[in-house]
């Protein structure tokens, strides 16, 4: 989600691919949210709570920072210049 110069990116699409093309519905069922919420998280339209973020990471067996990355706007600008 991009909000006030803060961006949280995620690797959920890639991780689903590496887990046998896991469907959004299957991930949603395991995490305890709706498929549309998984879709919104994946598309950067919604930043999940810490609890849901941990649950998603747990489903993939990865540490949180491998699933979600925090990128501040100033860092993005500095990297691009």
């Amino acid at each position: 989600m991009t909000q006030s110069g803060i961006s949280i990116r995620n690797q959920i699409r890639t991780l689903r691919f590496h887990h046998g093309e896991m469907t959004q519905q299957k991930l949603a069922d395991q995490v305890g949210v709706t498929r549309q919420t998984v879709n919104a998280i994946e598309g950067g339209k919604y930043s999940p709570s810490l609890e849901v973020a941990f649950r998603i990471a747990h489903v993939f067996g990865k540490p949180l920072e491998e699933v979600f990355q925090y990128v501040a706007a100033s860092r993005v600008t500095a990297t691009n210049s």
Binding site: G32, V33, T34, R35, Q36, T37, A40, Y46, P48, S49, V52
Partner: peptide, 8 residues
């Protein structure tokens, strides 16, 4: 008819 989640 999923229950409302945290986003809802």
């Amino acid at each position: 008819s999923d229950e409302a989640d945290e986003r809802d």
